[in-house]
Computed example of a mutant assay.
Amino acid sequence: MSEQLTIGELANRTGVATSALRYWETLGLLPPPARASGQRRYPPSAVGLVGVVLLLRDAGFTLREVKAFLAARTAAGDDWRELYQRKLAELDQRIAQAQAARTAVAHGLACPHEDIFECPNFAGGVSALLAGCSLEEAHARVHAH
């Protein structure tokens, strides 16, 4: 039998807390490990699987999406590609929102008014947001003059 890892050893090798590993197990991200004297025993391949979960999580996937990805990789077809395409579109949207937020903050810093609440552009942006505009739309409205 190959080397088996306790949950503590898996945690040490991956930097993931044992509580998170147990949680991921209940979610189905990690297969149920073998037991020896009641203790979890993971195969060495579990280190790589935890690494995949970490990579996908750090790339913006939710744990639910990670589970879907792991299931899709074992199914026939390219279902995982659809998951990646949806995540890419979501990330593009988040990047656009972050860029709009950065522009708004940079304009706020460059505002010549001593008190930003006295700035007509700031007030116009607030009004546009309250009217249902996105930050990007509000910014475009204010600076369309």
Rank of each mutant, 00 (worst) to 15 (best):
L5N: 03
A89P: 11
A11K: 04
E25V: 04
A110K: 09
L88H: 11
I95Q: 13
A76I: 11
L30K: 06
Y84S: 14
R35F: 00
W24K: 10
P112M: 06
E90H: 12
V16P: 14
L135C: 12
P44L: 15
A17Q: 06
A89G: 09
D115E: 10
S19Y: 08
G108H: 02
L129S: 04
I95N: 03
T62S: 13
G77D: 01
L29H: 01
G108T: 02
L109V: 14
F122P: 00
F122D: 00
E82I: 10
S2I: 06
L63F: 15
D115G: 09
P44M: 11
C111A: 04
V47P: 05
S2A: 12
A138M: 02
Y42W: 12
P43V: 08
L5Q: 03
L54E: 13
A144F: 09
V16R: 01
T26S: 14
L91N: 08
A20F: 01
R64V: 14
G38E: 00
G48N: 09
L49V: 07
E137P: 12
A106N: 10
A75Q: 14
Y23H: 15
E65Y: 01
A72C: 06
T18L: 03
I116M: 12
L130Y: 10
A59V: 04
L10W: 05
K87C: 00
Q97T: 08
A68V: 09
L70V: 13
L21D: 02
L55K: 15
P33C: 00
A89Q: 08
V105E: 05
Q99E: 15
G125P: 05
